[in-house]
Design a protein around this nucleic acid. Structure first.
Ligand code: SF4
Ligand code: SF4
Lengths: 141, 141
DNA sequence: GTAATTTCAGACAAGATAGTCTGAATATAT
DNA sequence: ATATATTCAGACTATCTTGTCTGAAATTAC
Protein backbone atom coordinates (compact mmCIF):
# COMPACT_ATOMS: atom_id res chain seq x y z
CA UNK A 1 0.00 0.00 0.00
CA UNK A 2 1.06 3.50 -0.65
CA UNK A 3 1.16 6.05 2.08
CA UNK A 4 -2.52 6.91 2.06
CA UNK A 5 -3.90 5.49 -1.18
CA UNK A 6 -3.47 1.92 -2.36
CA UNK A 7 -0.85 1.22 -5.01
CA UNK A 8 -3.60 0.66 -7.52
CA UNK A 9 -5.05 4.03 -6.72
CA UNK A 10 -1.72 5.76 -7.12
CA UNK A 11 -1.26 4.12 -10.51
CA UNK A 12 -4.79 5.09 -11.49
CA UNK A 13 -4.13 8.73 -10.64
CA UNK A 14 -0.86 8.74 -12.51
CA UNK A 15 -2.44 7.16 -15.57
CA UNK A 16 -5.38 9.54 -15.62
CA UNK A 17 -3.03 12.43 -15.19
CA UNK A 18 -1.14 11.29 -18.25
CA UNK A 19 -4.31 10.76 -20.25
CA UNK A 20 -5.33 14.31 -19.45
CA UNK A 21 -2.18 15.58 -21.11
CA UNK A 22 -3.04 13.84 -24.37
CA UNK A 23 -5.26 15.24 -27.12
CA UNK A 24 -8.85 14.64 -26.18
CA UNK A 25 -9.82 12.51 -29.21
CA UNK A 26 -6.79 10.22 -29.24
CA UNK A 27 -6.53 6.84 -27.56
CA UNK A 28 -3.53 5.83 -25.50
CA UNK A 29 -2.57 2.18 -25.19
CA UNK A 30 -1.72 0.33 -22.03
CA UNK A 31 1.66 -0.43 -23.55
CA UNK A 32 2.51 3.24 -23.90
CA UNK A 33 1.18 4.19 -20.49
CA UNK A 34 2.98 1.35 -18.76
CA UNK A 35 6.25 2.30 -20.40
CA UNK A 36 5.99 6.04 -19.76
CA UNK A 37 4.88 5.67 -16.16
CA UNK A 38 6.93 2.57 -15.35
CA UNK A 39 3.97 0.56 -14.12
CA UNK A 40 3.66 -3.23 -14.59
CA UNK A 41 1.78 -3.80 -17.84
CA UNK A 42 -0.85 -6.30 -16.82
CA UNK A 43 -1.43 -4.73 -13.48
CA UNK A 44 -2.10 -1.41 -15.13
CA UNK A 45 -4.36 -3.18 -17.62
CA UNK A 46 -6.63 -4.36 -14.85
CA UNK A 47 -6.76 -0.97 -13.24
CA UNK A 48 -7.67 0.74 -16.49
CA UNK A 49 -10.31 -1.87 -17.24
CA UNK A 50 -11.76 -1.24 -13.84
CA UNK A 51 -11.82 2.50 -14.42
CA UNK A 52 -13.49 1.87 -17.78
CA UNK A 53 -16.30 -0.22 -16.31
CA UNK A 54 -16.82 2.50 -13.74
CA UNK A 55 -17.33 5.01 -16.50
CA UNK A 56 -14.28 7.15 -15.89
CA UNK A 57 -12.50 5.98 -19.02
CA UNK A 58 -13.56 4.94 -22.49
CA UNK A 59 -11.86 1.99 -24.10
CA UNK A 60 -11.41 0.93 -27.68
CA UNK A 61 -10.04 -2.38 -28.90
CA UNK A 62 -7.93 -3.19 -31.90
CA UNK A 63 -5.01 -1.32 -33.44
CA UNK A 64 -5.05 2.39 -32.65
CA UNK A 65 -7.22 1.45 -29.70
CA UNK A 66 -6.56 2.23 -26.08
CA UNK A 67 -8.04 4.37 -23.35
CA UNK A 68 -9.20 7.94 -23.07
CA UNK A 69 -11.00 10.05 -20.50
CA UNK A 70 -14.75 9.67 -20.79
CA UNK A 71 -15.33 13.29 -19.79
CA UNK A 72 -13.33 16.47 -20.24
CA UNK A 73 -10.68 16.63 -17.52
CA UNK A 74 -12.36 19.65 -15.99
CA UNK A 75 -15.24 17.47 -14.95
CA UNK A 76 -13.23 14.71 -13.30
CA UNK A 77 -12.11 15.33 -9.77
CA UNK A 78 -9.63 13.30 -7.82
CA UNK A 79 -12.10 11.98 -5.32
CA UNK A 80 -14.14 10.15 -7.94
CA UNK A 81 -11.01 8.28 -8.95
CA UNK A 82 -10.07 7.49 -5.38
CA UNK A 83 -13.59 6.35 -4.65
CA UNK A 84 -13.66 4.11 -7.71
CA UNK A 85 -10.52 2.27 -6.64
CA UNK A 86 -10.20 2.51 -2.88
CA UNK A 87 -13.78 3.16 -1.88
CA UNK A 88 -14.89 5.61 0.75
CA UNK A 89 -13.17 4.13 3.81
CA UNK A 90 -11.01 7.23 4.09
CA UNK A 91 -14.13 9.30 4.66
CA UNK A 92 -15.75 7.10 7.25
CA UNK A 93 -13.40 4.95 9.24
CA UNK A 94 -11.72 5.70 12.54
CA UNK A 95 -8.05 6.64 12.51
CA UNK A 96 -7.33 4.74 15.67
CA UNK A 97 -9.12 1.66 14.48
CA UNK A 98 -11.55 1.50 17.35
CA UNK A 99 -14.27 -0.85 16.20
CA UNK A 100 -17.51 0.50 17.63
CA UNK A 101 -17.17 4.22 17.39
CA UNK A 102 -18.80 6.03 14.54
CA UNK A 103 -18.28 9.35 16.22
CA UNK A 104 -21.40 9.41 18.37
CA UNK A 105 -19.18 9.65 21.42
CA UNK A 106 -16.07 11.01 19.83
CA UNK A 107 -12.63 10.86 21.40
CA UNK A 108 -10.08 13.63 21.41
CA UNK A 109 -8.60 12.74 18.09
CA UNK A 110 -11.88 12.61 16.29
CA UNK A 111 -12.38 16.33 15.88
CA UNK A 112 -8.84 17.07 14.93
CA UNK A 113 -8.75 14.18 12.54
CA UNK A 114 -12.10 15.34 11.26
CA UNK A 115 -10.61 18.69 10.31
CA UNK A 116 -7.77 16.99 8.50
CA UNK A 117 -10.08 14.57 6.78
CA UNK A 118 -12.20 17.45 5.60
CA UNK A 119 -9.14 19.16 4.22
CA UNK A 120 -8.23 16.04 2.32
CA UNK A 121 -11.72 15.67 0.93
CA UNK A 122 -11.92 19.29 -0.08
CA UNK A 123 -8.61 18.98 -1.80
CA UNK A 124 -9.67 15.85 -3.65
CA UNK A 125 -13.02 17.33 -4.62
CA UNK A 126 -11.79 20.70 -5.69
CA UNK A 127 -8.85 19.47 -7.67
CA UNK A 128 -10.01 18.50 -11.09
CA UNK A 129 -7.75 16.41 -13.24
CA UNK A 130 -7.47 19.38 -15.54
CA UNK A 131 -6.11 21.67 -12.85
CA UNK A 132 -3.74 19.08 -11.56
CA UNK A 133 -2.50 18.18 -15.00
CA UNK A 134 -1.91 21.82 -15.90
CA UNK A 135 0.06 22.55 -12.78
CA UNK A 136 1.92 19.29 -12.97
CA UNK A 137 3.07 20.00 -16.48
CA UNK A 138 4.58 23.26 -15.32
CA UNK A 139 6.81 21.66 -12.78
CA UNK A 140 7.58 18.19 -14.03
CA UNK A 141 9.69 18.62 -17.17
CA UNK B 1 -3.90 -1.92 6.95
CA UNK B 2 -5.92 0.65 8.73
CA UNK B 3 -6.97 3.81 7.07
CA UNK B 4 -3.76 5.72 7.63
CA UNK B 5 -1.81 3.75 10.22
CA UNK B 6 -1.03 0.05 10.03
CA UNK B 7 -3.11 -2.31 12.10
CA UNK B 8 -0.15 -2.83 14.41
CA UNK B 9 0.09 0.86 14.94
CA UNK B 10 -3.58 1.20 15.74
CA UNK B 11 -3.27 -1.58 18.28
CA UNK B 12 -0.18 0.04 19.76
CA UNK B 13 -1.99 3.32 20.21
CA UNK B 14 -4.98 1.65 21.78
CA UNK B 15 -2.78 -0.33 24.16
CA UNK B 16 -0.74 2.67 25.20
CA UNK B 17 -3.90 4.63 25.71
CA UNK B 18 -5.13 1.95 28.05
CA UNK B 19 -1.85 1.77 29.91
CA UNK B 20 -2.04 5.50 30.48
CA UNK B 21 -5.32 5.03 32.30
CA UNK B 22 -3.74 2.62 34.76
CA UNK B 23 -1.91 3.60 37.95
CA UNK B 24 1.62 4.53 37.06
CA UNK B 25 3.38 1.91 39.18
CA UNK B 26 1.27 -1.08 38.23
CA UNK B 27 1.99 -3.55 35.48
CA UNK B 28 -0.67 -4.69 33.03
CA UNK B 29 -0.43 -8.10 31.41
CA UNK B 30 -0.87 -8.87 27.74
CA UNK B 31 -3.73 -11.15 28.70
CA UNK B 32 -5.66 -8.33 30.28
CA UNK B 33 -4.93 -5.85 27.52
CA UNK B 34 -5.85 -8.31 24.79
CA UNK B 35 -9.14 -9.11 26.50
CA UNK B 36 -10.12 -5.51 27.22
CA UNK B 37 -9.20 -4.20 23.79
CA UNK B 38 -10.19 -7.29 21.83
CA UNK B 39 -6.83 -7.67 20.14
CA UNK B 40 -5.32 -11.07 19.24
CA UNK B 41 -3.15 -12.12 22.17
CA UNK B 42 0.08 -13.12 20.46
CA UNK B 43 -0.11 -10.36 17.93
CA UNK B 44 -0.41 -7.82 20.69
CA UNK B 45 2.45 -9.54 22.51
CA UNK B 46 4.79 -8.88 19.62
CA UNK B 47 3.71 -5.28 19.34
CA UNK B 48 4.25 -4.64 23.03
CA UNK B 49 7.62 -6.35 22.93
CA UNK B 50 8.58 -4.13 20.06
CA UNK B 51 7.49 -1.04 21.96
CA UNK B 52 9.50 -2.26 24.94
CA UNK B 53 12.73 -2.67 22.98
CA UNK B 54 12.17 0.80 21.58
CA UNK B 55 12.05 2.19 25.08
CA UNK B 56 8.46 3.31 25.09
CA UNK B 57 7.34 0.61 27.50
CA UNK B 58 8.90 -1.18 30.43
CA UNK B 59 8.34 -4.89 30.79
CA UNK B 60 8.47 -7.23 33.72
CA UNK B 61 8.32 -11.02 33.63
CA UNK B 62 6.76 -13.44 36.02
CA UNK B 63 3.51 -13.29 37.96
CA UNK B 64 2.29 -9.75 38.53
CA UNK B 65 4.49 -8.84 35.60
CA UNK B 66 3.38 -7.07 32.44
CA UNK B 67 3.93 -3.76 30.74
CA UNK B 68 3.86 -0.13 31.80
CA UNK B 69 4.72 3.20 30.24
CA UNK B 70 8.42 3.96 30.60
CA UNK B 71 7.75 7.67 30.98
CA UNK B 72 4.89 9.67 32.41
CA UNK B 73 2.16 9.93 29.78
CA UNK B 74 2.69 13.66 29.53
CA UNK B 75 6.06 13.01 27.93
CA UNK B 76 4.91 10.53 25.31
CA UNK B 77 3.45 11.98 22.16
CA UNK B 78 1.61 10.09 19.50
CA UNK B 79 4.20 10.59 16.84
CA UNK B 80 6.86 8.70 18.72
CA UNK B 81 4.56 5.70 18.85
CA UNK B 82 3.69 5.97 15.18
CA UNK B 83 7.33 6.33 14.30
CA UNK B 84 8.29 3.30 16.37
CA UNK B 85 5.83 1.07 14.54
CA UNK B 86 5.23 2.50 11.08
CA UNK B 87 8.36 4.55 10.57
CA UNK B 88 8.48 7.99 9.07
CA UNK B 89 7.12 7.21 5.61
CA UNK B 90 4.11 9.37 6.29
CA UNK B 91 6.38 12.36 6.69
CA UNK B 92 8.46 11.82 3.58
CA UNK B 93 6.78 9.88 0.84
CA UNK B 94 4.77 11.17 -2.08
CA UNK B 95 0.99 10.81 -1.92
CA UNK B 96 0.71 10.00 -5.59
CA UNK B 97 3.49 7.46 -5.45
CA UNK B 98 5.67 9.11 -8.06
CA UNK B 99 9.04 7.50 -7.61
CA UNK B 100 11.63 10.17 -8.32
CA UNK B 101 10.12 13.25 -6.82
CA UNK B 102 11.26 14.35 -3.41
CA UNK B 103 9.66 17.72 -3.86
CA UNK B 104 12.47 19.47 -5.68
CA UNK B 105 10.09 20.06 -8.57
CA UNK B 106 6.83 19.73 -6.76
CA UNK B 107 3.51 19.10 -8.48
CA UNK B 108 0.25 20.74 -7.64
CA UNK B 109 -0.70 18.32 -4.95
CA UNK B 110 2.57 18.60 -3.12
CA UNK B 111 1.87 21.89 -1.44
CA UNK B 112 -1.65 21.10 -0.47
CA UNK B 113 -0.69 17.70 0.73
CA UNK B 114 2.20 19.33 2.52
CA UNK B 115 -0.21 21.48 4.49
CA UNK B 116 -2.28 18.48 5.44
CA UNK B 117 0.79 16.46 6.32
CA UNK B 118 1.95 19.26 8.56
CA UNK B 119 -1.39 19.34 10.28
CA UNK B 120 -1.18 15.62 10.91
CA UNK B 121 2.33 15.91 12.27
CA UNK B 122 1.45 18.81 14.49
CA UNK B 123 -1.49 16.92 15.82
CA UNK B 124 0.60 13.83 16.51
CA UNK B 125 3.37 15.81 18.12
CA UNK B 126 1.20 18.04 20.26
CA UNK B 127 -1.09 15.34 21.49
CA UNK B 128 0.54 13.63 24.41
CA UNK B 129 -0.82 10.32 25.55
CA UNK B 130 -1.86 12.03 28.75
CA UNK B 131 -4.04 14.57 26.98
CA UNK B 132 -5.55 12.02 24.70
CA UNK B 133 -6.24 9.61 27.52
CA UNK B 134 -7.87 12.29 29.63
CA UNK B 135 -10.16 13.45 26.87
CA UNK B 136 -10.91 9.93 25.78
CA UNK B 137 -12.02 8.94 29.21
CA UNK B 138 -14.50 11.78 29.22
CA UNK B 139 -16.26 10.65 26.12
CA UNK B 140 -15.91 6.89 26.02
CA UNK B 141 -18.07 5.42 28.78
C1' DG C 1 13.10 -26.27 44.83
C1' DT C 2 8.70 -26.64 42.61
C1' DA C 3 4.77 -24.83 40.48
C1' DA C 4 2.52 -21.06 38.46
C1' DT C 5 2.52 -16.94 35.70
C1' DT C 6 4.38 -14.04 32.91
C1' DT C 7 7.43 -12.00 28.94
C1' DC C 8 10.53 -13.40 25.11
C1' DA C 9 11.81 -15.52 20.67
C1' DG C 10 11.04 -17.44 16.45
C1' DA C 11 8.81 -20.46 13.29
C1' DC C 12 4.56 -21.03 11.04
C1' DA C 13 -0.29 -20.18 8.79
C1' DA C 14 -3.84 -17.23 6.80
C1' DG C 15 -5.32 -13.26 4.26
C1' DA C 16 -4.81 -9.27 1.56
C1' DT C 17 -2.47 -6.76 -1.91
C1' DA C 18 0.48 -6.60 -5.82
C1' DG C 19 2.04 -8.48 -9.89
C1' DT C 20 2.36 -12.26 -13.87
C1' DC C 21 0.84 -15.14 -17.49
C1' DT C 22 -2.07 -17.14 -21.09
C1' DG C 23 -5.52 -16.97 -24.21
C1' DA C 24 -9.90 -15.23 -26.09
C1' DA C 25 -12.55 -11.34 -28.26
C1' DT C 26 -12.49 -7.27 -31.09
C1' DA C 27 -11.13 -3.90 -34.30
C1' DT C 28 -8.02 -2.18 -38.07
C1' DA C 29 -5.23 -2.34 -42.13
C1' DT C 30 -3.64 -4.54 -46.13
C1' DA D 1 -9.46 -13.30 -45.60
C1' DT D 2 -5.39 -12.72 -43.00
C1' DA D 3 -2.18 -10.65 -40.04
C1' DT D 4 -1.68 -7.45 -36.39
C1' DA D 5 -2.59 -4.75 -32.44
C1' DT D 6 -5.20 -3.96 -29.00
C1' DT D 7 -8.61 -4.60 -24.82
C1' DC D 8 -10.89 -8.20 -21.98
C1' DA D 9 -11.21 -12.07 -18.68
C1' DG D 10 -9.59 -15.03 -15.39
C1' DA D 11 -6.41 -18.08 -13.31
C1' DC D 12 -2.13 -18.10 -11.24
C1' DT D 13 2.14 -16.59 -8.37
C1' DA D 14 4.69 -13.54 -5.23
C1' DT D 15 5.06 -10.50 -1.46
C1' DC D 16 3.59 -8.19 2.51
C1' DT D 17 0.68 -7.83 6.52
C1' DT D 18 -1.76 -9.98 10.00
C1' DG D 19 -2.54 -13.55 13.08
C1' DT D 20 -1.35 -18.36 15.43
C1' DC D 21 1.31 -21.70 17.77
C1' DT D 22 4.99 -23.77 20.53
C1' DG D 23 8.41 -23.62 23.72
C1' DA D 24 12.15 -21.35 26.34
C1' DA D 25 13.60 -17.86 29.96
C1' DA D 26 12.54 -15.20 33.92
C1' DT D 27 10.15 -14.00 38.15
C1' DT D 28 7.18 -14.74 42.04
C1' DA D 29 4.79 -17.43 45.66
C1' DC D 30 4.57 -21.37 48.36
S1 SF4 E 1 -14.08 9.26 18.36
FE1 SF4 E 1 -11.89 8.66 18.32
S2 SF4 E 1 -11.97 6.40 18.45
FE2 SF4 E 1 -14.03 7.07 17.83
S3 SF4 E 1 -14.06 7.06 15.56
FE3 SF4 E 1 -13.44 9.14 16.18
S4 SF4 E 1 -11.17 9.07 16.21
FE4 SF4 E 1 -11.90 6.93 16.24
S1 SF4 F 1 5.58 17.04 -6.13
FE1 SF4 F 1 3.68 15.83 -6.43
S2 SF4 F 1 4.46 13.92 -7.34
FE2 SF4 F 1 6.24 14.93 -6.41
S3 SF4 F 1 6.41 14.15 -4.30
FE3 SF4 F 1 5.13 16.00 -4.18
S4 SF4 F 1 3.01 15.24 -4.36
FE4 SF4 F 1 4.35 13.59 -5.10
Amino acid sequence: MGIIFSRQCEYALQAILHLASQPRDSMTSIRELAAKLDIPYHFLAKILQSLATKGILNSQRGPAGGFALSKPPEEINLISVVEAIDGLAISNQCVLGFPECGGSNPCALHHQWGDIREAVQKMLMNKSIAKLSRETRLSRT
